[in-house]
């Protein structure tokens, strides 16, 4: 599986964690700093514990599940500066939105062409909302 990180094909990177956030949380002695989370997790505690983590992989079980978009946005707002990796149903047609809300890494399905996916960043350059990538609405520019 290829990984895109910071808008480039990443050749060396940590594997996607298998440790779920809920398990990490219940095991107080755990010193792992990368977890897997999704919209079913306890979000307030994810946000308060984010500073102890270096990577949070957010799962998209289905194409239609948009909870991860809000989670990424709120993690960045909570000050999380580590890697937010999108895993699961990460199609190229949403990668630009994902980046805007705060994801900076994307695990691709094997059938996806990396060059084509990379071309999807910035496909629409005009934004009317403030977002995690620091770009404010166009009219405020």
């Amino acid at each position: 599986m290829a990984l895109i990180k910071d808008q480039q094909l990443s050749l060396e990177h940590a594997a996607t964690p298998e440790l779920r956030f809920a398990d990490w949380l219940s095991d107080g002695s755990n010193n792992a700093d990368a977890v897997l989370a999704n919209g079913d997790d306890d979000l307030p505690s994810l946000f308060t514990n984010a500073s102890k983590l270096s990577m949070i992989a957010l799962e998209f079980d289905t194409f239609a599940d948009g909870r991860g978009f809000s989670m990424a946005r709120m993690l960045r707002r909570a000050g999380f500066q580590g890697e937010i990796r999108a895993v699961g149903d990460v199609a190229m047609d949403r990668i630009d939105f994902m980046q805007r809300v705060g994801f900076n890494a994307f695990e691709l399905r094997d059938d996806q062409d990396v060059t084509q996916v990379l071309s999807k960043f910035g496909e629409v350059t005009v934004h009317f909302q403030p977002s995690a990538d620091g770009n404010g609405p166009a009219y405020m520019a």
């Binding site: 194409f63 978009f69 949403r94 009317f128």
Partner: peptide, 14 residues
């Protein structure tokens, strides 16, 4: 209209 157009966070609502 402007705020909601291509809002990146709310394209996959329930």
């Amino acid at each position: 209209r402007q705020w909601s157009s291509l809002h990146p966070e709310f394209a996959y609502l329930p």
